[in-house]
Simulated assay, not measured.
Amino acid sequence: MGKIYDRIDDRLRTFIEAQPVYFVATAPEQGGHVNVSPKGYPDTFTVLGDTTVAYLDLDGSGVETIAHLRQNGRITIMFCAFSGPPNIVRLYGTGRVVVPEDPDFPGLLERFGPHPGVRSVIVVECDRVADSCGFSVPFMSFEQDRALLDEWAQRKDTQAKRAYRAKNNRESIDGIPGLSPEETDPASVHS
């Protein structure tokens, strides 16, 4: 049924890149709330190497993933086939948060499609790549991406983005530090 892989081979890469949605899971070191975030926009995820992936972190209502990664680095990314043959791929690993001030940021940003409201890039070194059957995952039809997040980010001016990030992105729901004050100051970063 399931298989563990040494790396993200071409078949897995093709499957991953074809999925219109993926899920990111993180948790605090002890206690607290486990977080699972659905991510859309397929051009926000990229395979950087055999065991390295990255995704574009856009403005959102919380900062759980960033806070958890900075605390303990643990992350799992899951892709499900909602059409075609059943399949689930999970990428387990250690993530790091790359913010606009980091030297790696510009090169990473070039890997993604155009989106406003960029907070960071999450880079994951995978220590386990596995698939499983997905036999019970339902068939679902993809109609189109929702443009609402990009539209929301485009409507906010710098002051409004700064205020939003200061209120919602400084710490997780469990009080774990997220983005620092200088990191919540949006420089109108677009990918």
Rank of each mutant, 00 (worst) to 15 (best):
G2S: 15
G2C: 09
G2D: 10
I4P: 00
I4N: 08
Y5L: 06
R7P: 00
I8Y: 08
I8S: 03
D9N: 15
R11V: 15
L12S: 03
I16P: 04
I16W: 03
E17T: 07
A18L: 10
P20A: 10
V21F: 15
V21T: 09
Y22S: 04
Y22T: 00
Y22H: 08
F23H: 07
A27T: 11
A27Y: 10
A27M: 11
A27N: 05
P28I: 07
G31A: 10
S37A: 15
K39F: 13
G40H: 06
Y41R: 02
F45A: 06
F45G: 02
F45V: 02
V47S: 04
V47C: 08
V47Q: 02
L48K: 01
G49S: 11
G49W: 08
G49D: 13
G49T: 03
D50M: 07
T51M: 03
T51Q: 11
T52W: 04
A54D: 01
Y55G: 03
D57M: 08
D59Q: 10
D59Y: 13
S61W: 06
V63R: 01
E64N: 10
T65Q: 05
T65L: 09
I66G: 02
A67K: 02
A67M: 06
L69N: 03
R70L: 10
Q71H: 04
N72T: 06
N72S: 07
G73K: 10
R74E: 12
I75W: 06
I75C: 06
F79M: 01
A81G: 07
A81K: 05
G84D: 04
P85Q: 11
P86I: 09
P86R: 12
N87I: 05
R90C: 14
Y92P: 00
G93H: 08
T94K: 14
T94G: 08
G95A: 12
V97I: 15
V98H: 04
V99F: 11
V99M: 08
E101V: 12
P106L: 14
G107L: 10
E110K: 15
E110G: 13
F112S: 03
F112D: 01
P114E: 13
P114S: 13
H115T: 01
P116G: 03
G117D: 01
V118I: 09
V118K: 02
S120I: 04
S120G: 04
V123A: 05
V123Y: 06
C126S: 05
D127P: 02
D127K: 01
D127V: 07
R128Q: 12
D131Q: 08
C133A: 12
F135R: 00
S136V: 14
V137K: 01
V137G: 04
S141W: 11
S141L: 13
S141G: 11
E143Y: 14
E143I: 14
A147M: 12
L149T: 06
D150A: 15
A153K: 01
Q154Y: 02
K156C: 13
K156A: 12
T158I: 13
Q159H: 11
Y164R: 01
Y164K: 01
R165C: 09
R165P: 01
K167R: 15
R170I: 11
I173D: 00
G175L: 09
I176C: 07
G178R: 01
G178H: 03
G178C: 05
G178I: 07
S180Q: 05
S180K: 07
P181E: 03
E182I: 09
E182C: 12
E183W: 08
E183T: 04
T184K: 00
D185R: 10
D185P: 01
D185K: 11
A187E: 09
S188N: 15
S188P: 00
H190Q: 09
